[in-house]
C-alpha cells in the first residue's frame, strides 16, 4: 500500500509540524503533542479539551479554535493519547473557569482521560467530563465496552464549545455537552478497509463486492456484511438503524460524514438519498453538514449522525466558529 509518508514512526509528528505551519491561530507543541488555541487561556472562559488516536482528522486538532475546542491531544494512530498530554493541555488552557474533557467511549481513551482528570485536579484544575457514545451499531452494550464515540463528537465539541464561548460556567457547559451527547446517534458503513502506517496493509479484509454495515472508525466490525448496495439502499439501511434506536421528536442536525477515501461527489449523492429517506419517515432536518470530519484514515465509506436539536441547541450550532476544520459566521 502506497502512503504519502516519510516513515511510519514520524507520521503524527510530521502532521503536527504541518498543522503548525498552516494555522497561525494554533500553537502546536510537536514534542509534547498538544494543540492549543494561540490565544489560550481565554480569560473567564471554560476550556474544552479533547483528544484521541490520530487518523480521524480533522477530529480533534482541526476543531481547535474560537467557538469549539481550546486544546486537542493527538495520540499515535488509532491509539489514545497519554495522561501527560491531557494534563499539559488542561494546564495550558485553563483560565481558572475549569476544563471540560470530551472523551470518546473507547477503553483506552476513558482510562487515560480518567487518570489525567485525577492528576489535573491534584494540580488545582477543575475538571468535568463528557463521554460520547453515539454508535448504534453496537447493540450488545452489556457484553461489550459499550457504544463507541464517533460522529456525535463533532456536535458535542461544536455546541458545548459555543456555550463556553458565550461565557457559560463549567457545570452549564458540561450539561449542554451531555445533553448533546445523549441526543446523538451514528451509524457507519465501510466500502473498503483502512491501512494504518505502522501495519502498511489493510487492518481488516472486506471482499470486493461486499460492504460492512455498522463499521467503527477504526475499522471495528459492525452488524453485518452484505453484497454491495446502491447509495439509496445504504441511506435507507442507515436511516432505519438510527431511527430504530431513537425516533427524533424534534428537528435534527445531520452530519453526512466521509470516512476518508470517499469523494465528495459520492457523499453529496448519498446526502440526497439520506434527506429523502428521512423525509419519507417524517424526520425534519434543520441543518446538514457534508464532508470528511470524523475519518478513518483511507477507509472508503460514510457515516450518518443525527442530533436532535431544540431552539437553544440550534442557536449554539449556528454560533460563529473558527477552526481549521469548521468555520462559519466569522
Amino acid at each position: 500500500m502506497k502512503q504519502l509518508i516519510n516513515v511510519p514512526e514520524t507520521v503524527v509528528a510530521d502532521a503536527l509540524r504541518g498543522m503548525a505551519a498552516a494555522h497561525p491561530d494554533l500553537t502546536v507543541d510537536v514534542e509534547n503533542r498538544v494543540i492549543t488555541r494561540a490565544d489560550a487561556p481565554v480569560a473567564g472562559k471554560v476550556a474544552l479539551v479533547s483528544g484521541g488516536g490520530s487518523g480521524h482528522e480533522p477530529l480533534h486538532g482541526g476543531f481547535v479554535g474560537l467557538g469549539m475546542l481550546d486544546a486537542a491531544c493527538p495520540g499515535e494512530v488509532f491509539t489514545s493519547p497519554v495522561p501527560d498530554q491531557m494534563t499539559r493541555a488542561a494546564a495550558a488552557v485553563d483560565s481558572g473557569a475549569g476544563v471540560l474533557f470530551v472523551v470518546k467511549n473507547y477503553t483506552g481513551d476513558v482510562l487515560n482521560f480518567d487518570m489525567a482528570a485525577e492528576l489535573a485536579e491534584d494540580e488545582g484544575v477543575q475538571i468535568a467530563r463528557v463521554l460520547v457514545e453515539d454508535d448504534v451499531a453496537v447493540t450488545d452494550s452489556t457484553f461489550t465496552a459499550g457504544r463507541r464515540g464517533t460522529g456525535g463528537t463533532l456536535f458535542v465539541e461544536k455546541i458545548a464549545g459555543a456555550a463556553a464561548q458565550e461565557g457559560a460556567p463549567l457545570d452549564r457547559v458540561a450539561a449542554v455537552a451531555r445533553q448533546v451527547s445523549e441526543s446523538c446517534r451514528s451509524f457507519g458503513v465501510a466500502l473498503s478497509p483502512c491501512t494504518t502506517p505502522a501495519k502498511g496493509s489493510p487492518t481488516f479484509e472486506l471482499p470486493a463486492g461486499e460492504l460492512e454495515l455498522g463499521v467503527g472508525i477504526h475499522g471495528e466490525p459492525g452488524r453485518e456484511r452484505r453484497g454491495m448496495m446502491t447509495s439509496g439502499e445504504i441511506a435507507d439501511a442507515t436511516v432505519e438503524a438510527l431511527l430504530a434506536d431513537r425516533m427524533p421528536t424534534a428537528p435534527v442536525l445531520a452530519l453526512v460524514n466521509g470516512m476518508g477515501a470517499t469523494p465528495l461527489l459520492e457523499l453529496y449523492g448519498f446526502n440526497a438519498e439520506v434527506q429523502r429517506a428521512l423525509s419519507e419517515r417524517g424526520v425534519v432536518v434543520a441543518r446538514t453538514l457534508v464532508g470528511n470530519y470524523v475519518t478513518s484514515l483511507d477507509m472508503a465509506g460514510c457515516s450518518l449522525t443525527l442530533c436532535q436539536a431544540d431552539e437553544e441547541t440550534l442557536k449554539l450550532w449556528d454560533a460563529p466558529v473558527r477552526t481549521p476544520g469548521l468555520r462559519w459566521g466569522i
Binding site: G53, G75, E76, T79, S80, V82, P83, T107, G108, N112
Partner: peptide
C-alpha cells in the same frame, strides 16, 4: 506516560 491506548494504563 508513553504508551496510550488501554495497554499503557
Amino acid at each position: 506516560s508513553k504508551v496510550g491506548g488501554a495497554s499503557g494504563p
